[in-house]
Design a protein around this nucleic acid. Structure first.
Lengths: 267, 267
DNA sequence: AAAGTCGTATGGTCAGACCATTGCTCAATC
DNA sequence: GATTGAGCAATGGTCTGACCATACGACTTT
């Protein structure tokens, strides 16, 4: 049981939860206005706002000033903030992060090799191509890197694993956007990704797992050298403005990070 | 960028974050009173409360009526609610959950086999013993089951992986508290856990991974048969009152679920 | 028909008050 | 002197009501 957290706000949370479970609220749907919810549930508007804020904090819904409150749309995701705070609070090291990511992604690579559809394989191939095409543009390369790993996660067919790895990975990419590798690393990385792709395409589970493991080991060491530290350095603890691009229902406006691209949930 | 979420509340969140990053706030510490924070940051008290509520929602801090607001103490944890809502929202199946858990725990078992200290191994052994001692008491058995997996996660030495698997596992245990297996399953499960323990004690990475994988596969099938479904059933989507026992600083009061037992962070 | 303007709906913020709980102080009591 | 109980101050929880800021559609104008 949560230590305190109030009572009336919890009514709101439970109400929204039941609406979701009963299928009356689905991703993208709009909730009733706060004032209306208040009278419906017999609580004050501040309490409604408190409950909604809790749900917004864990990524269940998003509010748009002047427009309304909406159930978060797009692929299932957990958000990187909780982990980011946890890292700041308990001093997670970058190596621990990498290790967690490797444990996840190796399993994911294996599942992807088992199940990837032709279409998913094609998507993965596209990102590999994109990598080789941007060996001279680290920023663009990074975009394809992110999307490659997303595509593999989607091909695993397991949205939970995809969400988890997305959460862990998010902390790296923000950091990597600045400290970009040199050209030689990029070519090496591209080849590593191609190897993973080939294994998945061949539905070779064992090789896919090995290739992913190898890739992440190399990447980890490369980054350690880059930052010239003794592998015990804490994670930067910043995340100035990563947060996936908000997924506004309309407005294709997309500048920096690529679209979430529906990792795995089609449902 | 978060879609909206207000601005003043975000000031509060960032302030707390910076306090944490500067080491001025550590787990267990008490924050200034809301009224004081309000004047310090030049925002109204409702805004302070809004920011604090966001942080409370992601498990960073806890409020105690009449006492104050505290940075969450105890082992790092992410909380199961976000995943629970995500499950309700996107209809995760139980098999997907099991698969995610297996991917995580197999990796964890391998790391535990590599690194487990004698003390950690002893803790694991204790839970195995407890299982065999409660073959006739499914409730007690489940407690030891939970603690066994926690102990293995702690022995992996990676608090991030421990947090992730705890988050995923939480959804099972609440369900299992009711639908308890029969005696034969219990004995089988106890033996499976013992096999994992033996592999870890022998620091046999490969065997530890294989044993964990096997154990979770069997458990998955057993649970599928129990609920007599076609493996596609959605997760129950309830979690009436799981939430780890609040970790009150004082008051050893502990009844149902076992102590968090400091998975991995000793600080 | 296109473009700009206005108005309404809706979330964001604030102020102030009062309630509920906690935990301590201090006095009464044994 | 130790214990217990009442009282009090600190602190979070809730409410009312008002006003501001934004978004989006309807309407007007060109």
């Amino acid at each position: 049981m949560k230590p305190s957290e109030g009572v009336t706000a919890e009514i709101v949370v439970q109400h929204v939860r039941s609406l979701i479970e009963r299928g009356e609220l689905r991703p993208g749907d709009r909730l009733p206005p706060e004032r209306e919810l208040a009278v419906q549930l017999g609580v004050s508007r501040p309490s409604v706002r408190a409950g909604l804020r809790s749900l917004a904090a864990i990524g269940i819904l998003q509010t748009r000033h002047g427009a309304g409150t909406f159930i978060t749309d797009g692929p299932p995701t957990l958000g990187s903030e909780p982990l980011s705070f946890l890292a700041a609070l308990h001093g997670f090291t970058r190596d621990e992060m990498f290790e967690a990511r490797r444990a996840l992604e190796v399993g994911i690579a294996g599942l992807a090799a088992e199940r990837a559809t032709d279409e998913q394989i094609a998507t993965i191939a596209e990102e590999v191509t994109g990598m080789f095409a941007s060996l001279d543009d680290p920023q663009a390369f990074l975009i394809h890197d992110i999307r490659f790993h997303r595509a593999v996660a989607a091909a695993s067919g397991n949205p939970i694993l995809a969400s988890l790895v997305e959460m862990v990975s998010a902390l790296f990419y923000e950091q990597r956007r600045k400290t970009v590798e040199n050209g030689r690393d990029l070519k090496q990385a591209a080849q590593a990704h191609r190897a993973i792709y080939h294994a998945i395409r061949a539905h070779d589970v064992k090789r896919a797992r090995a290739a992913m493991s190898e890739h992440l080991s190399v990447a980890q060491q490369a980054q350690a050298l880059e930052n010239g530290d003794a592998a015990g350095t804490q994670v930067p603890a910043a995340l100035p403005s990563f947060d996936a691009p908000a997924h506004r229902p309309r407005r294709p406006a997309r500048v920096s990070v690529p679209a979430p691209a529906s990792p795995t949930s089609a449902r």
